[in-house]
């Protein structure tokens, strides 16, 4: 397999706002054609990184390299990168068609060609026939698609998406997640997606960078980040996790090093059930039960102190069954491979 040049490289990139280190010496490499997510809580530096790639913000120090070219000091209009904005930023005085064709109009592409490509783009985002409307006549989801079409019409090398699904309701968001992924496959452009929604990042990305306080905590595939979180923060931020440390860890594994285990990896078994060689176990009592339809969440208080959250799918049980489980003694079992040492 031929290795192509990385789409984006960050070399010790920092961005300070006064005393605040929004981005702190970040090194990063984003591959050509991948769907890359920057995940983190607000204020973690992910959006600042995106804005520095777009050129709206400049690094205080370090270099940003786009397909081998140092773009750190180039203005936005000289970068082959386009952005889908969080608030869509559609031009209110132009029609949908004029919005989409804006990039071509600026580049003085011939009128006929503009029309043709604008219609292709509206087709791609399933808005054929909407060219004459004003953005104010569209729903949130439709504006989102217009913003996407407008950003893709210049065939940028990299498409930046700044929390583009944040304003949509859940159903629409899930639908757009699938569509965005499909569109990315079709156009074959590198997508960089900023989000604070871990589920969104896990669903769509080829790789995820988890940001915290201006630094990257972990970069990896969704499975990597989810199954083998590198730090307690990642374990807690991406999905929910049981973080076990100190005495409690020592009782279970014989080692006081902190580890994390996902609630769905733990099985509820009858007390005294035999423990296989490759499993860990802990005994306790179910203190709380939350029925969530598809699955049920149990809070189990361990006999030696501390508690673990366990999630089980409601394959056979009904809400009546699970709610009766409160106060029952149980043995918890899980495979030794399913813990992740998170040093900390």
């Amino acid at each position: 397999m031929k290795l192509s040049a990385p789409a984006i490289q960050f070399e010790k990139v920092s961005r300070y706002f006064g005393e605040v280190k929004a981005v702190d010496a970040v090194d990063l490499e984003i591959r050509d054609g991948e769907f890359f997510s920057m995940l983190g809580p607000s204020g973690s530096g992910k959006t600042t990184c995106l804005r520095m790639i777009a050129g709206f913000d400049r690094p205080t120090s370090g270099r940003i390299i786009l397909y081998g070219q140092d773009v750190s000091t180039l203005p936005p209009y000289e970068r082959d990168v386009n952005t889908v904005f969080q608030d869509y930023a559609l031009f209110p005085h132009m029609t949908v068609g004029e919005n989409v064709a804006y990039g071509l109009m600026i580049r003085k592409v011939a009128k006929a060609e503009q029309m043709k490509r604008m219609e292709e783009m509206l087709d791609l985002v399933q808005l054929a026939g909407y060219a004459a409307r004003k953005p104010s006549q569209l729903s949130g989801g439709q504006r989102q698609r217009v913003a996407l079409a407008r950003a893709l019409i210049n065939h940028p090398k990299v498409l930046l998406l700044d929390e583009p699904l944040g304003a949509l309701d859940l159903k629409l968001r899930q639908q757009m997640q699938v569509e965005l992924k499909a569109i990315q496959k079709r156009v074959g452009i590198t997508f960089i997606f900023v989000t604070h929604d871990q589920e969104e990042a896990l669903t769509m990305s080829d790789r995820i960078a988890v940001f915290r306080d201006g630094k990257i905590e972990q970069i990896g595939s969704p499975a990597d980040v989810y199954e083998r979180p590198a730090t307690p923060f990642v374990a807690g931020f991406v999905g929910t996790s049981n973080l076990v440390s100190g005495d409690m860890a020592a009782r279970i594994t014989g080692d006081a090093q902190t580890f994390s285990v996902r609630p769905e990896k733990i099985h509820l078994a009858a007390p005294g059930q035999t423990v296989a060689n490759d499993a860990y176990s802990a005994d306790g009592v179910i203190r709380d039960v939350v029925y969530l339809g598809l699955f049920t969440r149990y809070l189990v208080e361990l006999d030696g102190g501390g508690d673990l959250v366990v999630v089980e799918q409601n394959l056979k049980s009904t809400s009546m069954d699970v709610l009766k489980a409160r106060g029952r003694a149980v043995r918890l079992l899980w495979n030794r491979d399913h813990i992740s040492r998170v040093g900390g």
Binding site: A54, G55, F56, F85, Y102, G103
Partner: peptide, 8 residues
């Protein structure tokens, strides 16, 4: 920003 981003 969007205008500049699109090459203006």
């Amino acid at each position: 920003e969007a205008s500049g981003d699109l090459g203006a």
